[in-house]
Amino acid sequence: MLGLLINEMEQKEIEYLLKRELEELLFDLEDSRIDQTVKAAMRERYHKLFQLLRRVVSEQECMKYMPKQTKNW
């Protein structure tokens, strides 16, 4: 296990970056032009980033970025 000491400003920056990346991934996952193999890699990345987001934001904030339960997930 690793630990990380960050100040509040750094936490907000990490939160912002993670949210932006998750939003972009969600948008791209809806694009029908993207190959399913690529989407599988994108979903894997999304899950990893979501786990990181859970460590720096509240449960309510996490709910906004929960993936929709569809056959693609």
Rank of each mutant, 00 (worst) to 15 (best):
L2F: 01
G3P: 05
G3Y: 12
L4F: 03
L4M: 07
L4Q: 05
L4N: 02
L4S: 02
L5Y: 10
L5A: 11
I6P: 06
I6A: 02
I6N: 05
N7M: 02
N7H: 01
N7S: 06
E8V: 13
E8C: 07
E8G: 04
M9S: 13
E10P: 04
E10I: 07
E10V: 07
E10L: 06
Q11C: 10
Q11N: 05
Q11G: 08
Q11E: 05
K12M: 09
K12A: 01
E13Q: 10
E13V: 06
I14N: 06
I14C: 00
E15R: 06
Y16G: 07
Y16I: 09
L17K: 04
L17R: 02
L18D: 00
L18S: 00
L18G: 04
K19F: 06
R20S: 09
R20P: 07
L22N: 02
L22G: 01
E23D: 12
E23H: 03
L25C: 05
L26V: 09
L26I: 05
L26E: 09
L26P: 04
F27E: 15
D28K: 13
D28H: 13
L29Y: 02
L29S: 03
L29G: 03
E30F: 04
E30R: 14
E30Q: 14
E30L: 03
E30H: 14
E30A: 12
D31V: 05
D31F: 03
D31A: 00
D31H: 11
D31Q: 08
S32C: 00
S32D: 15
S32T: 13
R33N: 11
R33F: 10
R33V: 08
R33W: 11
I34P: 13
D35C: 08
D35E: 07
D35Y: 05
T37L: 08
T37S: 11
V38R: 10
V38Y: 08
V38I: 05
K39A: 00
K39F: 03
A40L: 12
A40N: 11
A40K: 14
A41L: 09
M42P: 00
M42L: 01
M42W: 09
M42S: 04
R43P: 00
R43H: 02
R43D: 08
R43G: 00
E44F: 14
E44D: 00
E44A: 12
E44G: 04
E44H: 10
R45K: 05
Y46I: 03
Y46H: 01
Y46G: 02
Y46N: 04
K48C: 07
K48E: 11
L49Y: 03
L49I: 04
L49H: 03
L49S: 01
F50Y: 09
F50V: 01
F50Q: 01
F50M: 01
F50L: 06
F50E: 03
Q51K: 14
Q51F: 11
Q51A: 11
Q51D: 12
Q51P: 11
L52M: 09
L53C: 04
R54G: 15
R54H: 11
R54K: 14
R55N: 13
R55T: 14
V56F: 00
V56W: 02
V57M: 07
V57Y: 01
V57Q: 02
S58G: 15
S58W: 09
S58H: 10
S58L: 08
E59V: 15
E59Q: 13
E59F: 08
E59N: 14
Q60H: 13
Q60I: 15
C62E: 08
M63H: 13
K64P: 06
K64E: 12
K64I: 13
Y65C: 04
Y65F: 14
